[in-house]
Design a protein around this nucleic acid. Structure first.
Lengths: 174, 174
DNA sequence: TTGATTGCAAAGCATTTGCATGCTA
DNA sequence: TAGCATGCAAATGCTTTGCAATCAA
């Protein structure tokens, strides 16, 4: 799942470049946080990443992880995503195809998918309004294949009113 | 823009039905909040609606507006949406076509749009994963036709890293 | 040496909840 | 009258910031 350490050369280069271009400084904390972020192919909150970093260096604080994630986002290495539980998750952005998400509201599983057709149609729709898109977010909530039997009624319509109570935690925990 | 009072009969009926079915009670506050919500064709936060309600009845509290919006959402009359500024907005749901949003990151304008093709392709994509969708959210951020000249560089790519600082307030305020 | 970085603690902010009082049914 | 509804105040939870000490360049 995780790439070998040596393979993150390009990402680290990008980070360094961003750091320098912005007149910022390379620090041990930032290096460590980047390293662990890159190794973890998952959707992580700042908090999640903080605990992972803690294991390696207990002196690193919440704030630094939080600020470094913002930095990574600026550098184009990370992307912020939200799944409906009011938390900000981060995922790899560099060298990762753009993709969208299906979120199982029963078990919390997150499926990444990509549809060039949908992308193309979004651009088309935008153009109709003279709108120049910079980025977008498509999320589909529902029941994953493992959770079909949990369907509340005999037929579930597409116009359910309430926001789901997504239990994304169960994904993070395995 | 707003419908005449008399036309909300159906919505009120639905609300009453939901109230009764759930063993809840009809109150003056709930009636007033529903009334004002229905009259306001806009994306409102609980806070926004609270201030509108205040004008008519200063005794109504934040909490009641908040709880009533949840109730309306359950009843299928309202829908929760988020535009990236960490606030929960509510929009009309009953008798309103499902639609998606384009959000101008410069002026905050929100354009509602609908594409049957995109909808169909989402279902198609879901099916590929054995995923049964209940609902979805598609948001496209970018520059509306009025704000094209604000484009930061000569060419803006679709892979911008950072989340936009959406100034949705400017929409609410006019 | 200078000014960015860090991490603690505390502030912000939107959202939720506990609870005594008030009011529907 | 019973128990849901209300609204105040306070708690919560995530995110963000002030600031003094620390450290990279």
């Amino acid at each position: 799942m995780a790439k070998k350490k040596e393979e993150f050369k390009k990402e680290k280069e990008i980070f360094l470049e961003h750091i320098q271009k912005s007149g910022l400084r390379k620090t041990a904390q930032r290096d460590l946080i980047l390293e662990i972020f890159l190794k973890t192919e998952d959707h992580l909150t700042s908090e999640d990443l903080y605990w992972l970093v803690q294991k390696q260096d207990p002196t690193v604080g919440h704030t630094t992880v939080y600020r470094t994630l913002k930095l990574l986002t600026e550098a184009g290495l990370a992307r912020e995503v939200r799944f409906g539980d009011n938390k900000t998750y981060y995922e790899h952005h560099y060298d990762h195809e753009h993709h969208d998400h299906m979120i199982c509201t029963n078990c919390g599983k997150v499926i990444e998918f990509f549809s060039p057709e949908i992308e193309a149609m979004q651009d088309e729709a935008a153009e109709k309004f003279g709108f120049v898109p910079t980025h977008h977010s498509l999320r589909i909530w529902g029941f994953c294949s493992d959770c079909q039997h949990e369907l509340p009624d005999q037929h579930q319509t597409v116009s359910s009113g309430a926001q789901p109570r997504v239990r994304v935690k169960s994904v993070m925990e395995g």
